[in-house]
Design a protein around this nucleic acid. Structure first.
Lengths: 121, 121
DNA sequence: GCTTGACTTCGAGTGTGCTCGAGCTTTTAC
DNA sequence: GTAAAAGCTCGAGCACACTCGAAGTCAAGC
């Protein structure tokens, strides 16, 4: 099988079918090819791209930034540096976020210990 | 000064004034004391609590879970263990989230390098 | 030829977490 | 005594990222 139905793609990516169509509608993925009946056919390339988008999404990138990234990608190889920069900026934001999470995790830990000690007393 | 106006509290906590009133409205903080004119007075205790809530919110706890936590706290010392458990559960979720972020960061890094190499070629 | 099932489009609806504005009161400063 | 500043309540509105449902098409199986 060289391509997949929307259902298969959704299962593989852990997306809803609605979300897949939504991503296409808002331009996060270029229109996928269609069968003669108008049904979408997802190629491996489509799945790869969506999988990377998922990664960006999970790390907190907004739809509009992903859209900007997609628009760069669509413009071809001239935007490779720009794309690297966009991802680097994102990378730094994610790093900062992780650092913040770890700092706050310590506060939570402190509170947990506090409660445990009080409960034991 | 033994208490603070809503404006001062908002500045100190990096909250909006609206958000402070919202938190009280939905029961994330017990009704703060009021001056004779009906204005809110935030005590240090209030600020401490809000500051910890901020920590929970920043680590991704939902308002409704924070509400549950608040409800336990309001019931007194009998709920110390329950509170510790709630926080422990949250802690694990945050840890899992951090791990996921770090894994996905690697994918982003790979992509960045990919782009940089292609741009250099 | 009719049902079933997977797909299509389109526009409206949802949940979360605030955010805002209208209309009012009170205190302070001139 | 009046104007400005700060606060109040209440309900509506907003941004985000989907999510859903109605109404229709198309191909396959009986």
């Amino acid at each position: 099988m060289t391509h997949k139905s929307i259902r298969q793609a959704a299962e593989e990516l852990n997306f809803s079918i609605h979300a897949l169509r939504y991503y296409e509608r808002v331009g996060l993925i270029s229109p996928v090819t269609r069968g003669t009946n108008g049904h979408r056919h997802y190629s491996n390339e489509d799945l790869c791209w969506l999988s990377f988008l998922t990664c960006l999404r999970n790390t907190g990138m907004s739809i509009s930034t992903m859209k900007a990234f997609m628009d760069l990608a669509r413009q071809g190889d001239g935007t490779l540096t720009a794309r690297a920069e966009l991802l680097t900026t994102h990378r730094e934001q994610v790093c900062a976020h992780v650092a913040q999470l770890q700092a706050q995790l310590e506060q939570v830990d402190t509170k947990i210990q506090c409660y445990q000690q009080q409960a034991a007393a």
